[in-house]
């Protein structure tokens, strides 16, 4: 009887668009999260709730519960993972407090036959899957966009993030790599904006008087609006400022676009990446072959889809996108192709 049920269900689902197979309907997936104290993480948890709630209602999986540790501590999250093993989940989706410190707990989960998918804060334990962010490529993409838009090149101002943080080094390395490949550009100045509009505004205002004419500003997100304010206050021509998907940045871009046809692009990581990890975990539970290392696609906003993305972004927040099973399948297919 069982195979008939499965065949029936598969047939029905194929009609419904093939978004889910029935094999995982009895599987339970848990989200282990180490921190919920900023807007990105809040949006990440909300995205998880929206997508997995629907998935549970549709019977794609039996349960998808989110667990956040009370304090952002490695030992607490290790204990949490052990408790999730005891609860008998089939997969644990993990945003880790430490890339190394949870390896023991992750290994225990793997040994208990649990699929572990880490994202954003990934773990190095070989038995787990990793959905990592290629920050370097993100920096490079900014320069590539400018190279396309400004073929003659010119001077660039770089706004960096918080000094000493891995993400800052990676994005900056990507930007410099892009500039090395496109010698028509020169980075004439570099300031730290700490991913905050007020800091960026002050830093840019400070360096502007010493700079020649600049055609573009490469940023790391959370700093584009501040840069625009500083440049406007200095009475300079507005260069192409690459944005970072923040609500204030997109709003400013929209105003400029309506007023004078200003063109740029915006790129960052969508908090909805948790939902991508959910679908990847489901694919693995479904028995599909998934490479251990996957890369998060960036959420890129261009001139054409600005309005649509701005409408979906709440004030003070970051542009978000919820991933679907098809998106996950595409990411996996890309990783296989590499």
């Amino acid at each position: 009887m069982k195979w008939i049920n499965v065949a029936l269900a598969t047939g029905l689902l194929a009609l419904a668009g093939g978004s889910a197979a029935a094999d995982t309907s009895d599987k339970r997936i848990a989200l282990s999260n180490n921190y919920a104290g900023n807007s990105w993480r809040q949006a990440m948890l909300r995205s998880w709730e929206n997508v997995t709630g629907q998935a549970v209602t549709d019977g794609v999986v039996a349960a998808a519960d989110a667990f956040t540790t009370a304090e952002n501590q490695v030992t607490e999250q290790a204990a949490q993972i052990q408790n999730l093993i005891l609860e008998g989940y089939d997969a644990i989706v993990l945003n880790a407090a430490s890339p190394e410190g949870l390896n023991g707990a992750v290994k225990e989960a793997c040994d208990a036959g649990i699929t572990v998918v880490s994202f954003d804060g990934v773990v190095t334990e070989p038995c787990a899957w990793r959905i990592a962010v290629d920050f370097k490529q993100m920096g490079k993409d900014e320069v590539l966009y400018l190279a396309e838009k400004l073929p003659d090149g010119g001077n660039l101002l770089e706004i960096r993030g918080l000094a000493g943080v891995f993400v800052d080094d990676e994005i900056s390395a990507g930007i410099h790599e892009g500039v090395a490949e496109n010698p028509q550009f020169t980075i004439v100045g570099s300031v730290h904006g700490d991913w905050a509009q007020d800091v960026a505004q002050k830093a840019v205002a400070g360096i502007l008087p010493s700079l020649p004419e600049i055609v573009g500003v490469v940023t790391q997100g959370g700093d584009g609006y501040g840069a625009a304010q500083a440049i406007k206050a200095a009475g300079r021509d507005m260069p192409v400022i690459v944005m970072g998907n923040r609500h204030d940045e997109l709003t400013w871009w929209k105003e400029q676009k309506d007023a004078n046809g200003y063109e740029t692009m915006s790129v960052s990581i969508a908090p909805g990446v948790s939902t991508l990890a959910f679908w990847v975990a489901r694919m693995i539970l479904d028995g599909e072959e998934v490479p251990k290392d996957l890369t998060v696609p960036f959420l890129r906003i261009d001139q054409g889809n600005l309005e649509e993305n701005l409408a979906n972004t709440e004030a003070g927040g970051v542009a978000n996108t919820l991933y679907s099973a098809e998106d996950a399948a595409r990411v996996v297919a890309e990783a296989k192709g590499m």
């Binding site: 304090e71 501590q73 490695v74 030992t75 430490s98 390896n103 707990a105 190095t124 334990e125």
Partner: peptide, 17 residues
Amino acid sequence: ALLGLTTAGDANIAVRY
């Protein structure tokens, strides 16, 4: 003992202790 359980180190691993 903690290191034996986690298998890898992190300087901030035991702040709560």
